[in-house]
Simulated scan of single mutants.
Amino acid sequence: MDQKTVLITGCSSGIGMALAVRIAKDEKKRFKVYATMRNPNKSEKLAEAAGRTLGRTLEIKQLDVCDEKSIKACVDSIPNRRIDVLISNAGMGLIGPIECQSLEEMKAVMDTNFFGLVRLLKGILPDMKRRKRGHIVVISSVMGIQGILFNDIYAASKFAVEGFCESLAVQALRFNLNLTLIEPGPVITEFERKVYEEGLKTDLSAADKETANMFTNVYLKNYNQIFQSLGQTPEDIAKHTHKIITTNKPPFRHQTNNLYTPMTTLKYADPNGDLPIDTFYKMVFEHDKIFNASLNFIKMLRWGSRKSFNLGKPQQ
């Protein structure tokens, strides 16, 4: 069997790096991985993690999902422009009250998370259609199906991705193509740490006192606790994704975190949409002690199987 060509975006750290390394180290050597990143100067950690696969089943290339010329140059450099599996992973986050965020920041999130995927597919999808062969894998998020407090813009970008892919999936079937949305919950990465650190620096002067207090003393306070209790590792996501791309009939959606799935199920349990919003509100504002006790219990159960995780202290 010929090796499948896999192109992955956002591989300088976190989920992208874990994906590239795991797939390149596939025991059956079924894949040739092109691990891409916006800035190749940040490839040192990936090269180290790749080990002996570097130059064999893994190559590092430059690709910026916000630059069509960059995408074209990368795809053109791949033999016959043949990409069997595209894993769209590059992204950026943003947390905080919307009155404290600029439209430029919001546009940057949408440009990377949504239009970055669109640009990739404009450059790669026509070849897949012509060959009638290919698998498009998008690293989405549970926030693509359920909004979370103070993640308004990030959730919007992932909702856009999910709607786009639902529409595209119908067309893809006509060309014998597979499309899969991978939907992690909290994942312990430098990406999340940076988002949190930027959140700590948020200028809250434009927000009213109650909103500012809610962000600092409710959201940021619980952020660390949620990751300690429910967070997965990048390797967990890579393991799930590796299994997805090696199955004969990959699903359209795949949630990676069984601990978080009951939360997203709430959305489908009530056609009116009130149940998840009401449940989250009561958890955060009316039953916060029970919520925190539950997180502590889950954390205790998982303590022996994972390292502790600390993002730092919320601002006062």
Rank of each mutant, 00 (worst) to 15 (best):
N248R: 15
D236Q: 03
N257W: 02
I15G: 07
R38C: 14
L181F: 00
L266M: 13
R174S: 11
V85P: 10
H287V: 01
Y154T: 11
D208P: 11
A238H: 09
D84E: 09
E162R: 14
G91P: 15
D67T: 12
Q228E: 14
A206S: 11
R174C: 01
M106R: 09
K209F: 03
L54E: 12
Q3R: 10
N41S: 14
G185Q: 00
A212C: 14
R119V: 03
K194Y: 05
I290D: 13
V6T: 11
R131D: 15
G199P: 08
I244W: 01
C66I: 11
V142R: 03
I245F: 02
M110K: 06
K282G: 02
Y268H: 00
S141P: 10
A50L: 11
R56T: 07
F191C: 04
A172V: 01
V75S: 03
L301I: 15
F31A: 02
K61W: 04
G91D: 02
V142C: 06
K299S: 11
K158V: 12
D203N: 15
G55N: 07
V6Q: 05
K194N: 15
V33L: 06
K221S: 13
T9G: 11
R306E: 08
I83Q: 08
V195W: 02
Y260D: 01
Q228T: 08
G14V: 06
V138M: 00
H287N: 13
Q316S: 06
N80M: 07
N258G: 11
S229W: 03
F309T: 14
S77N: 04
R193Q: 09
K209P: 08
Q3I: 01
